[in-house]
């Protein structure tokens, strides 16, 4: 099989690294070789965070070629744009439409970009993951929603997700599962606007 390359991005504190850990564990449980790579350190202080996950028969480099990305999963709207040089014709881009304004706007005099106008096409999915997560009563399950959205395209099941999730998170399993299924469903029913 072809190696699958996933880039999960967002803002420090959103759970980007936790999400990439769960995706990695799902792939590992399926018997794949898996590597993931990210930079820790200053992420807790509101910086941009990114994590690469690769799985397949044999993975050498933990870092994929930039434009070999199969998925970009962005937990924040503008962050998807930051990584758009990693996009190829086939890259599925799943964007949580949450906007977190960076403090730098005040100094740089830049506007928060109009992401939807700049990043569009049949391969881009804008979803209100945070809104859907709030409906379950726990905003933090947006993680599971985003993973679910990705799983609309590959064959990881709700059971695969449940196993990987409960290995790491003991609480809010019901809410997380609901969010996962909702994410998957919303991508399957996605209508390009």
């Amino acid at each position: 099989m072809k190696t699958v390359n996933i880039l999960v991005v967002g803002v420090g504190g959103q759970g980007v690294v936790a999400a990439s850990d769960i995706i990695s564990d799902m792939a590992l449980a399926r018997g794949f070789d898996v590597k993931k790579s990210e930079i820790h350190g200053m992420s807790q202080r509101g910086g941009a965070v990114s994590s690469f996950v690769r799985y397949g028969e044999h993975i050498a480099s933990p870092l994929p070629y930039k434009n070999d990305m199969d998925f970009i999963i962005s937990f924040e709207e503008m962050e998807a744009l930051r990584w758009s040089d990693h996009v190829n014709e086939g890259t599925k881009i799943i964007v949580n439409t949450l906007k977190i304004k960076p403090a730098s706007l005040a100094i740089s005099k830049l506007e928060y970009p109009d992401v939807k106008a700049l990043l569009k096409g049949a391969h881009v999915y804008y979803l209100d993951g945070t809104g859907e997560a709030k409906k379950t009563g726990n905003e933090k399950v947006v993680n599971s929603f985003m993973i679910g959205a990705m799983c609309a395209f590959n064959d990881f099941t709700a059971d695969d997700f449940n196993a990987a999730l409960t290995k790491r998170v003991k609480k809010y399993t019901e809410e997380n599962m609901a969010a996962f299924n909702k994410g998957k469903e919303m991508v399957k029913n996605y209508v390009l606007s």
């Binding site: 420090g12 202080r45 910086g47 941009a48 758009s84 040089d85 960076p102 730098s104 830049l110 700049l118």
Partner: peptide, 14 residues
């Protein structure tokens, strides 16, 4: 390829 369309505001740690 660099298909970045615009200057994306930076998000330095703070």
């Amino acid at each position: 390829s660099d298909v970045r369309h615009t200057v994306v505001p930076s998000r330095p740690p703070s």
